[in-house]
């Protein structure tokens, strides 16, 4: 709980400093007051926990981001190629896919990663299945092969 509050404080302070750019005492004091107000409200709403501030992901997340950027670039090239090739070349598919994550945060990270790569959209998430619409049947097959699933599962421990 304490670690999550400190993490939220640092995030909000960075957000204020980067957006204002003024370093006078008055502006810094106003910023500090605003951050404290936000912290009080957030504690009354009881939303500061490991789900809103997932600090335990920080260890492995940067390697995952690098892999995700590579995947996004490849998917973009594929989709743009099929835009110019025309409607005959696409094969839209709708399929339920099993996911192997245990925690809610892991499931959401996986579903968001599916949606973030163009060509696949996660439509619904029920228990341990995710309903995916893909532009090409090949994309669904590479999701079932489970490279992204394995990486997200590695991320959550």
């Amino acid at each position: 709980m304490k670690r999550h509050t400190i993490s939220l404080f640092l995030t909000l302070a960075a957000f204020w400093l980067l957006n204002s750019g003024h370093n006078t005492v008055l502006m810094l004091a106003l910023g500090f007051a605003a951050i404290m107000l936000v912290l009080v409200i957030v504690h009354k709403m009881d939303v500061v926990d490991h789900e809103s501030q997932p600090i335990y992901l920080t260890r492995n997340i940067f390697g995952y981001y690098l892999w995700l950027i590579k995947a996004i670039i490849e998917a973009n090239i594929t989709v743009v190629k099929h835009v110019w090739l025309g409607n005959k070349s696409i094969s839209p598919t709708l399929k339920r896919i099993k996911i192997s994550q245990k925690t809610d945060v892991g499931k959401v990270v996986y579903a968001n990663s599916i949606t973030l790569t163009p060509g696949t959209v996660a439509i619904d998430l029920i228990d341990d299945e995710v309903l995916v619409h893909a532009l090409l049947r090949k994309d669904i097959e590479s999701l079932i092969a489970g490279e992204m699933d394995r990486r997200v599962t590695l991320l959550e421990r």
Binding site: N76, V79, V80, V83, P92
Partner: peptide, 19 residues
């Protein structure tokens, strides 16, 4: 403009939104 239905158009918008 070119894709045939709503769900495939969503993938086209995904390209402009990400990369």
């Amino acid at each position: 403009l070119r894709f045939p239905d709503f769900y495939t158009r969503m993938h086209a918008v995904g390209v402009t939104d990400t990369l």
